[in-house]
Simulated assay, not measured.
Amino acid sequence: MAIPRQLPNAITVARIPLAVLSLILLLLGGMLGDSNLALRWTAAIIFVVGMSTDWVDGYLARRHDIVSDFGKLWDPIADKFLTGAGFIGLAILGEVWWWMVVIILIREWGITVHRLMIANEHVVAAAWMGKIKTVVQAIALSWALLPFWLLIGVQAFSVVSLVLMSLAVLLTIASGIDYVVAQVRGARAAR
């Protein structure tokens, strides 16, 4: 069965408004506190659904042989909108340290700006380490957004959150270094 050629790209772009909606609900829920966890749950579920679409759009594009330069460029950008909104929202609520968020955002948007600057020359698809980094960020954010502290207690929840966020920061730094090294090697080989 054939699918519309633009469906994977439409799914990719849909992550951007999902990021905004998730952030708004997270912050509204945070302002209301534990008295209204429905907003927190909703924000978390929207985030999880949004991150799940990252797999769906890629699968559809590869399965139906409709991979596009638009998708290669915008898929990681949409991911960064969604994860960035999650990190910023949690930092605003005081649930993640700002220094972690700043490191992640500098790496994410620095590489995104570079990709956009060289898009006329060639499109840089996400490398394997960048994909692993995105998965770990998604897991860390999903854990932190879902109010699991109600089930396991605040202390256990905080320890798991710290471990997952620390791993996300380390992989973000490592994948950023990997990207820069690959770009430098590619530039040297092109000369």
Rank of each mutant, 00 (worst) to 15 (best):
I77K: 07
I77Y: 10
I77Q: 07
I77P: 12
A78D: 06
L82C: 04
L82K: 13
G84M: 10
A85C: 15
A85L: 07
A85F: 14
A85R: 11
A85Y: 12
G86M: 12
G86W: 15
G86Y: 10
G86I: 05
F87I: 02
F87V: 02
F87D: 05
I88Q: 00
G89S: 06
G89M: 08
A91H: 10
A91M: 05
I92Y: 07
I92A: 05
L93Q: 12
L93W: 08
G94Q: 11
E95K: 12
E95S: 03
V96W: 06
W98S: 01
W98K: 05
W99K: 12
M100V: 13
M100D: 15
I104G: 10
I104P: 00
L105G: 14
I106A: 15
R107T: 03
R107M: 10
E108S: 13
E108N: 10
E108F: 07
W109K: 08
G110S: 08
G110M: 09
T112K: 03
V113M: 11
V113S: 11
V113C: 04
R115T: 04
L116Q: 04
M117N: 08
M117C: 01
M117Y: 01
I118V: 13
I118F: 03
I118P: 03
I118R: 12
E121R: 06
H122R: 10
H122V: 01
V123I: 15
V123D: 02
A125H: 05
A127F: 06
A127W: 04
A127Q: 07
W128T: 14
M129G: 01
M129T: 14
I132E: 04
I132V: 15
I132C: 06
K133C: 04
K133T: 10
T134Y: 01
V135Y: 01
V135E: 02
V135K: 02
V135A: 12
V135W: 02
V136A: 08
V136G: 06
A138G: 12
A140I: 05
A140Y: 09
L141G: 15
L141Q: 15
S142E: 13
W143Q: 13
A144I: 07
A144Y: 04
L145Y: 06
L145W: 09
L145F: 03
L146A: 04
L146S: 05
L146M: 12
L146H: 04
P147A: 00
P147W: 03
F148A: 00
W149M: 01
L150F: 07
I152P: 03
G153M: 02
